[in-house]
Design a protein around this nucleic acid. Structure first.
Length: 256
DNA sequence: ATGGTGGCGCGGCCA
């Protein structure tokens, strides 16, 4: 199974890029974040014509997540159980015997922001939800825009980012607590080039200058990590005209 | 250079 995640920063603007990428990369499933579309505007027909089923949980202007997959998802869940939230950030479903969680973790802004407290509370609720799901689904993948750099290898200039939002110790600790449930950062199961990032600010020519962060992650439960054959970032779409500020991340698992 | 760019949607928020 080939599965990918991509924060597209408006599916309306990026639909062409996404369809082109699906045709080229041929994933079995793709998790999208920041679709920024109400459900009535979701371009389901375009995906079906490309041979993909769709599930989505969107809203106007902000947030919004979707899963496109070769076979339809079952047991679809939106949101985190016990954590009422108007922001559409979670969409889970089952493919075969694999439970898939598509996540758009709150950005958190700066560490002094109210949004940062929301982010940490949200991550605690996510941890509880994943812990419960893992009791029933030993094969689980949680992927998406985590808005957290796991460690300083994932930061272009760690001294500049030290302690700041996306790189602060409480956020990294929250991520480690997710991993402690029995999940692996699939990217780090393999040797990777230095300076591997998945997001580059639109400003200051950050992509051209290689100034990015790795905040888009694919976490796999141990049962799947043992079958993970590769995990990589596809930077090519970030170099297109009018790109998303994120690149897709892809993992391949020997299952099925 | 305490800025810069982009999406949404038309002023200001969010990333």
């Amino acid at each position: 199974m080939r599965i990918a995640t991509w924060n597209v920063n408006s599916l309306r603007v990026r639909l062409g890029h996404v369809l082109d990428w699906l045709a080229a990369a041929q994933p079995d499933a793709l998790a999208l974040q920041e679709t920024k579309l109400p459900d009535e505007d979701f371009p389901a027909a375009a995906f079906r014509e490309a041979g993909y089923e769709v599930a989505f949980a969107g809203q106007k202007t902000y947030n919004g997540v979707a899963l496109v997959s070769r076979t339809p998802l079952t047991e679809i869940l939106t949101g985190l159980p016990g954590y009422p939230d108007a922001q559409r950030r979670v969409l889970a479903g089952t493919l075969g015997d694999v439970r898939v969680f598509n996540l758009y973790v709150p950005n958190g802004e700066s560490t002094s922001s109210e949004k940062y407290q929301y982010k940490l509370a949200w991550l605690a609720a996510l941890r509880a939800a994943l812990a419960e799901e893992l009791t029933r689904h030993p094969r689980l993948i949680a992927l998406g825009d985590f808005n957290i750099t796991p460690d300083d290898r994932d930061v272009h200039e760690p001294e500049l980012w030290a302690g700041k939002g996306l790189c602060s110790e409480p956020e990294r600790e929250a991520l480690r607590r997710l991993l402690a449930l029995g999940l692996d950062d699939a990217f780090r199961l393999f040797e990777q080039p230095e300076g591997s990032f998945s997001w580059w600010d639109y400003r200051a020519a950050a992509f051209r200058r290689g100034m990015g962060l790795r905040i888009d992650l694919i976490l796999s439960s141990g049962a799947l990590s043992a079958r993970c054959r590769s995990c990589s970032i596809d930077k090519r779409p970030r170099a297109l005209e009018r790109p998303s500020d994120h690149a897709p991340v892809v993992a391949e698992f020997d299952i099925g």
